[in-house]
Design a protein around this nucleic acid. Structure first.
Lengths: 135, 135
DNA sequence: TTGTAATTACGAAACACTTCGTATATAATT
DNA sequence: AATTATATACGAAGTGTTTCGTAATTACAA
């Protein structure tokens, strides 16, 4: 009985984000971009074999797919950004907001300054949901 | 140089949630409520000394405060629910939504079914923000 | 074909978080 | 005061995640 991975960990998410952004890439490339980001945040660099190991584990977990190209492997995210966001979001709603997505939304709107354009867009979405007749 | 705790872990959050809900409480009480919740989710019970240890560590981290009452300690959350939610929310926005709270909000609204009343409430909040003149 | 550079594979150490067993202390009961 | 029950303190084992050093493999160049 294999254990199935429920949520991406922090290090995994970091790698996923890069692959979502740039598409298929080698370990070298991912590691480079990773350290580029870390550098700009004054964080410690991570070794190439560390990134390699992470990506190998994620491949085993079916979180990434890969194909061979000469001596290299080219990796891709095998889970979608949306599905992952959804998972993490639902988790946060359940663990920190007592299951109420509404509370989370209101906190999110209150916390970060949101542009007028964004507010209008959100309102439009709500209008559509109201019109569509919330099942 | 002491290391400062940035985010509550899962186990810590579980305890905080109980203290936020019921107010000041002993280790016994917290452990009882904890296991009550776990039971209803078919999760394994946790031992009393485990909960005790967690709460002691959280007290050291200044996440809880406490006072003595006879031979017992009475613990309280020393961090507010709102501040903690905010921290976790901002973290999620940054790590999973590329810094866009708007994207998170729209996902949250789309995912979970939200009642008409809640939608109206959110819209009202947005109206107020628009009116108030987003600084 | 041999040597060199690039890449992957593997194992284990380092770290962080969670769990619990046992020891110690304190209070209540007889 | 001695016994029992309840609570805390402490150390360490268990578990999961992240990191990396070293070995093995592969492709390419000389």
């Amino acid at each position: 009985m294999k254990k199935i991975k429920e949520k991406p960990t922090d290090a995994e998410l970091e790698i996923l984000r890069i692959l979502w952004e740039v598409g298929p890439a080698t370990v070298q490339e991912v590691n480079g971009l990773l350290n580029q980001k870390r550098e700009s945040l004054a964080q410690k660099e991570v070794g190439l074999t560390t990134t390699l190991k992470m990506m190998q584990l994620m491949y085993q977990n079916r979180m990434l797919s890969r194909e061979s190209a000469g001596r290299k492997h080219i990796y891709q995210a095998a889970v979608s950004q949306e599905a992952t966001q959804k998972k993490l979001l639902n988790r946060l709603v359940d663990t920190a907001f007592g299951g109420s997505a509404t509370k989370l939304v209101m906190q999110a709107l209150g916390n970060k300054k949101t542009s007028k354009e964004d507010l209008a867009e959100i309102k439009k979405l709500i209008d559509e949901m109201e019109k569509g007749g919330q099942a």
